[in-house]
């Protein structure tokens, strides 16, 4: 329908130089109609693109700060055992994940520096014997089983391959939570189109497809559902 309309429009404005078909009765609609339709179409398209690519992601994710900002870079020079001082494997092969106070109180019985975050950490958590309710950026949905032992011990992968270069971070990242699913934005990634790769040092996206792509490349198969689900 619309193509014939456009053809008529072109014919009437005289832009079409090809021989005209026998004259038809003049359309009753106003001559400007196609331009108005075109204008609203383009305006609508641009509007929805702006909404879909810029406003919607802003609305979709709520932003939260960690209870206290943690400085990885400062600590990497202080601890003896690298990342494993705070993120270690237990004897049964499970991964300790985010640290509790037991990884910190050897040093933080009293505030050593002048930093507000340290002050807050000591007075509000250590002194009151409370754990810090850290928000977990990489945390997967409840139905997912992930094994650090398989990747770090089995495949010998470096933490940075998935999490980016954490050791250089001087403050905690802002935590973004999907308002609909409640999942961390790290899983989907920061590019809403999921095109391109995360910048150097940034965490990799961790959708099911991302896991499967690497498994296909490294182990020759994507794996059975129960490998990664529970």
């Amino acid at each position: 329908m619309s193509t014939t309309d456009q053809h008529h429009a072109a014919a009437e404005t005289g832009q079409d130089k090809t021989p005209l078909p026998p004259a038809e009765p003049k359309p009753t609609a106003d001559e400007n109609t196609p331009w108005i339709i075109g204008f609203f179409f383009v305006a609508g398209l641009v509007g929805s693109l702006i909404f879909g690519w810029i406003i919607f992601p802003e609305l979709l994710y709520s932003k939260k700060q960690q209870p206290i900002s943690f400085n990885h870079a400062v600590h990497m020079d202080l601890v003896y055992d690298g990342c494993a001082s705070c993120h270690y494997f237990r004897d049964d092969g499970s991964f300790s994940g985010l640290p509790d106070n037991s990884s910190c109180i050897d040093c933080h019985q009293v505030a050593m520096g002048v930093s507000e975050d340290e002050e807050k950490y000591v007075t509000e958590y250590v002194d009151q014997n409370r754990e810090v309710p850290w928000l977990s950026h990489p945390r997967q949905p409840d139905c997912v089983f992930f094994s650090h032992a398989a990747h770090v011990k089995g495949a010998g992968m470096d933490c940075a391959e998935c999490h980016g270069d954490v050791s250089k971070r001087t403050e905690s990242r802002v935590y973004q939570e999907n308002r609909l699913s409640g999942y961390s934005r790290d899983i989907w990634g920061y590019s809403i189109s999921r095109l391109g790769k995360p910048a150097e040092g940034e965490p990799k996206t961790m959708k099911m497809n991302d896991c499967a792509r690497c498994h296909q490349a490294e182990t020759g198969h994507k794996g059975a559902c129960f490998q990664c689900h529970k």
Binding site: G93, S94, D142, A149, K230
Partner: peptide, 30 residues
């Protein structure tokens, strides 16, 4: 270790598959 189910889905015995996953974790560790 076992995800909880919600209304509208079917569930069944898994031979406690999560215990297999945990046993594999230990095997990787060792």
């Amino acid at each position: 270790n076992v995800s909880a189910r919600m209304r509208g889905v079917v569930e069944k015995c898994s031979f406690c598959f999560h215990r297999y996953q945990l046993a594999k974790d230990r095997a990787y560790h060792e």
